[in-house]
């Protein structure tokens, strides 16, 4: 546990040293700001941020892999993996530490978007429940995105490959799957609904916290973290 805190702390501070992190924050806030101004913050609109919360997951597909691509790839490329893994730490502590470091960074980034509901609340009574559940949904979704990105970063020493692979996988399960859900019918549709991350997320954006979806996000995050640990073990066994 102490090792995890140490590793998380280092990871978080190294995020702040990296220029990519600032670009990621900037892109995230600019794009979400544009969406907020053009779709949400409208005269006569409802006093909530629903349109913004529908779009943020899509922004995150593009932005979070850039945050996670260097996590392990950089360790492999620089050789620091050798000093790291010959210190008395377990593989799982390394992966969880890296994950938490980026996750906390993501939470800080997300905290900056609190300004939007705050602005809305000036013009009408804000739907606090809906805002809360939407944030819960975004946090769960973000955790899964980061776990996927971390998994791909563990697979390769090349950051470009890591970012592209996580981007492709996330785009498939977020955008393509959501598109297919609306195109097909019958059993394939039911299957696609389970695959589509947006289908799981929609209930949160509608104001519902459903155990089903919560468990889905938490267990898929766990799965990708587990896979990352196994890949890290495997890479050393070769």
């Amino acid at each position: 546990m102490r090792n995890i805190i140490t590793l998380t702390g280092r990871e978080l501070s190294s995020q702040f040293y990296s220029p990519i992190a600032y670009i990621v924050i900037a892109v995230f806030l600019v794009v979400s700001g544009i969406f907020f101004a053009t779709t949400t913050f409208l005269a006569g609109g409802p006093s909530n941020c629903r349109p913004l919360f529908q779009l943020l997951p899509i922004v995150m597909v593009f932005v979070l892999p850039m945050l996670t691509m260097r996590l392990m790839s950089e360790e492999f490329r620089n050789g620091t993996i050798e000093t790291l893994m010959t210190a008395p730490v377990r593989d799982i502590e390394v992966i969880v530490g890296k994950f938490l470091g980026s996750f906390i960074f993501f939470l800080l980034m997300l905290a900056a978007t609190l300004v939007y509901p705050f602005l809305v609340s000036f013009y009408g009574p804000l739907d606090i429940g809906l805002t809360f559940t939407s944030y819960v949904g975004l946090i769960l979704l973000g955790a899964l995105y980061i776990a996927v990105g971390l998994f791909f970063s563990t697979c390769t020493r090349n950051q470009v490959i890591a970012v592209l692979c996580s981007f492709v996988l996330l785009a498939i399960v977020t955008l393509l799957a959501d598109f297919l859900v609306r195109q097909i019918e019958g059993t394939p549709r039911v299957v696609m609904q389970q695959v589509s991350l947006l289908s799981h997320y929609h209930d949160f954006a509608r104001g519902l916290i459903d155990t089903n979806h919560t468990v889905f996000f938490l267990s898929s995050t766990g799965l990708f973290l587990f896979l990352a640990v196994k890949v890290l073990e495997f890479r050393r066994w070769r």
């Binding site: 140490t6 040293y17 050789g79 000093t83 210190a87």
Partner: peptide, 23 residues
């Protein structure tokens, strides 16, 4: 290790402190 791999963004004291914590 060969070529002494280190985290370039950290300061020396910061790095040694981090390694000390791991131990």
């Amino acid at each position: 290790p060969e070529n002494a791999p280190l985290y370039p963004e950290m300061r020396v004291r910061e790095y040694l402190n981090f390694r000390g914590k791991l131990h």
